[in-house]
């Protein structure tokens, strides 16, 4: 494992911890898209079914369990927690995420490394992860004001994607048989979706002002 991959995993983990901290400390999920969280839970469940078939390392297995458990916990809190669910911005979170699921499933059936159950699910999870942030970005755009923790959450998620791209570039040059064009193309699309957010994040950071997205 190279340093970029490790930093990518760590920023991903930090983003989830920030989200859990926000929900736990403020007992509020305002500004957070339940649809994006549901998509992530689906992404992890579909991709990490290989927990039962392929063993890579203890690190990989532990991280997979952490990602599945935390994403389910977040969805559960937003839907069922007596206090937290009241702060959910339901009227702003109207992105039709089922279309994303259907489109990604169709794409995975057409484009995958091998037409097996696990490979189709794996490709599906990669495609879905690439676009899963869309409902969250739309929600932030609509609400305009972004609270600190929500801003940090999206920032670290974007940083995770950026580190993974560096990781692929590194692997491309250091490993003889590295070709993961499905992950790489999807990863580039996913990171590009953050470009706009990053732009406004850095502006607010530079001006030391509150993060605001244009309507």
């Amino acid at each position: 494992m190279n340093i970029f991959r490790f930093l990518g995993d760590m920023t991903h983990l930090i983003s989830i911890l920030i989200l859990l901290l926000k929900i736990y400390a403020t007992k509020s999920c305002s500004g957070i898209s339940l649809k994006t969280q549901e998509l992530y839970a689906l992404v992890f469940l579909a991709r990490y079914l290989d927990l039962f078939t392929d063993f890579i390392s203890v690190y990989n297995s532990v991280m997979k369990v952490v990602f599945i458990a935390s994403s389910l916990a977040i969805v559960w809190c937003m839907r069922r927690h007596r206090v937290v669910r009241r702060s959910y911005d339901k009227e702003l979170d109207t992105f039709r995420h089922y279309f994303l699921v259907a489109a990604c499933l169709a794409l995975a059936l057409l484009v995958q490394e091998k037409f097996t159950f696990l490979e189709v699910l794996w490709a599906f999870s990669i495609y879905l992860e690439a676009v899963a942030i869309l409902p969250q970005l739309v929600l932030l755009q609509r609400s305009g004001n972004v609270d600190n923790l929500t801003g940090q959450y999206v920032f670290f998620l974007g940083a995770y994607r950026a580190f993974y791209i560096l990781n692929w570039i590194y692997r491309y040059f250091t490993e003889t048989h590295f070709s993961r064009w499905i992950s790489c193309v999807s990863g580039l699309v996913q990171t590009a979706l953050y470009a706009d957010f990053f732009y406004y994040y850095f502006i607010s950071w530079k001006n030391n002002s509150k993060l605001q997205l244009p309507a």
Binding site: R5, R47, M63, K64, F67, E113, L118, E119, T176, H177
Partner: peptide, 10 residues
């Protein structure tokens, strides 16, 4: 080389 079906990234 890496076998198809083994995904070592998260």
């Amino acid at each position: 080389g890496e076998a198809v079906g083994v995904h070592d990234e998260l």
